[in-house]
Design a protein around this nucleic acid. Structure first.
Lengths: 344, 344
DNA sequence: TATTAGCACTCGGGTACGTAGAGTGCTAAC
DNA sequence: GTTAGCACTCTACGTACCCGAGTGCTAATA
């Protein structure tokens, strides 16, 4: 479809615009060593590229900027993933040199490192807690009428919730209940906890505990209400403010709002999908993000769990670099997390 | 020092500027019903107030705005705390109607409510975790070489940390250690934990456990490294963007940066001090906040613990309203938290 | 004597205008 | 097929101008 020359001009135009944030003119382009054509030729080709819909003008006599379609073509066909500079690799891998013991810590550090390395905003989603498996349950009485329920999972994740207990309850009852719960629920995933709780566990409890009713009810409620957004980690939330593309305060507000709001996270980070994805401008579902591009990638968090990473930047994002960084990190992160769970 | 008329003019000028964000002129003021003087008189008085240093001009022929000193005087002597509108009180108190079981939840909700009610940014600091008292300790082995240490405090707060354990350790040793730790450390505040750990507890462990060394060492390290900023809660981080006073993106960046950075929190929220404090402009220690005012107040979180609340807004902040809101909330919050711990 | 009306002056913000520079499209020459 | 040349367009920027809201000062007034 496109001639070789058109491809070259498109590529160089996008590259230049990504780098400079200024509309690209024919004269400017003709001065580049990789472009051996005269400005006039370039103008002709640019006019054609505009007709096809890959380039746009900001006004009648301005240089060209890539259109959304242009970015899409660039990303799909013209992206030559240049290897990362060594110092970036070293810096990125420094995350794993601290030998952190907790998954959360590693993911948190990764989020920070990503934002630092890219100057964009990063969002990391940890592996789904609900698929973790119960390792131990305990109930610790706090006052005469409250206790805290603690669930430890196989990954070392600890969930805890305070719940009310009936007044005048015998401490031995709590112990009894704890024992029964442990017998019945260890090995069950958090996901299946409520099912199990209501089925067999309940009947067993009935047999052994007189006043199981109230205690069980409140315990169940406490354990099942999830703490949301617990495993979403951000890096460089303020990096948007660095981008010259964003100057409209209202838009910045909307964007930051959307990013922090937990309920929008699934729209930004498609939980199920594997591999690397790039969404450009209005390809994003959220209108607040129509001026952004989002690159997402999944990683393997051990135990058949996956997490995901998103980098959010302007459409004029350094795709080449970000893709390289995400490729590297997703691989390294998978390796590290698997190493951490190796002993399970 | 100041005549009655000067006081009136100063007060009305500040009030008007707080409300309109526009420099206040003599004509404008003379139209207000509470001001029975001619513009010329007002001009004379304003000139005097400027000479004293309470008012400023933005340029030679502009209206006046309050100087830092002017705000200070206003806050110290002219603030007539108008009672809050009923609907605000109702809204504020709705926090406590949900009967939340956890301190953290209540504080988190308060932060959100504050930002909503004030349109400024709120920061709430929970009571100092390190003064909580150990209620129970447990160690749950995860893999052959890692375990998770869990500390439950009297407030129902749960601290947990993963730490490596020596390979080939007997499970009974862990149990033994857990028992000893519980015997020796329950009732000790987190603050004093490291002291106790190193003194008597260590000697007891030595007696009962053969390979106590490695296990104890890593456990100690894990338990003592604090998870920072764990009890800082924000509300309305983005509200700064709503303020017409902030338009310089660079300043906004600096400000947001400073607010999020954990290490600056002590500078914003003076941890020790009691009661309500107002810091205006450069009275703040952080230069990034020289265009802000911060109102802080402490609250009583039960068990002789205190937390603090800060509202961060422009110098042109609605002091009257914020002071009323903080007064009310700090009282209510204290009551609620004390109620929650009543049974201890 | 304290207050006020009147007046000349100042400054920011908006609009109009002119110019320089970078860019375009088109045509004709190479 | 490519390019030089040219007329045209639009932005950015600087200057000029005016309007309105404000000030300070002086002189008149209650």
């Amino acid at each position: 479809m496109l001639t070789k020359r058109q491809l070259l001009i498109l590529k160089v135009t996008v590259d230049d615009y990504i780098q400079s944030a200024q509309p690209v003119g024919s004269n400017q382009l003709s001065k580049k060593p990789e472009i051996p054509f005269s400005p006039a030729t370039i103008r002709n080709e640019m006019a054609e590229l505009e007709r096809i819909g890959f380039l746009e003008k900001t006004h009648t006599s301005s240089g060209r900027i890539p259109s959304q379609k242009g970015y899409r073509y660039y990303v799909d066909y013209l992206l030559t993933p240049r290897p990362l500079p060594k110092e970036d690799i070293v810096q990125l891998r420094s995350i794993f040199e601290e030998r952190l013991t907790e998954t959360e810590e590693v993911i948190k550090r990764s989020a920070m490192m990503l934002s630092e390395l890219t100057n964009y905003t990063s969002i990391l989603l940890g592996p789904d807690v609900r698929r973790h498996i119960v390792k131990k349950l305990s109930i610790v009485p706090l006052t005469s009428d409250t206790a805290v329920a603690i669930i430890v999972t196989d990954t070392g994740h600890v969930e805890n919730r305070i719940f009310p207990i009936p007044l005048g309850l015998d401490p031995s009852d709590i112990e009894k209940m704890t024992n029964i719960l442990n017998e019945r629920l260890v090995g069950v995933s958090l996901n299946n906890l409520h099912l199990r709780l209501e089925q067999e566990t309940l009947t067993v409890l009935k047999q052994h505990l007189e006043r199981y009713g109230e205690l069980f009810h409140t315990f169940r409620q406490a354990v099942l209400s999830p703490h949301e957004d617990e495993n979403v980690y951000y890096g460089g939330k303020l990096n948007i403010l660095k981008q010259p593309d964003f100057h409209d305060l209202q838009k910045i507000r909307n964007l930051m709002d959307v990013m922090e709001e937990a309920k929008h996270i699934p729209m930004i980070l498609p939980v199920g999908s594997q591999g690397l994805h790039i969404r450009i401008g209005s390809e994003n579902t959220l209108t607040a993000m129509e001026d952004c591009s989002v690159i997402t990638v999944s990683y393997d968090a051990g135990e058949e769990q996956t997490g995901s990473i998103a980098i959010i930047g302007p459409k004029r994002m350094d795709y080449k670099r970000i893709v390289s960084i995400l490729d590297l990190l997703s691989g390294d992160l998978s390796k590290e997390l698997n190493r951490m769970f190796k002993g399970t």
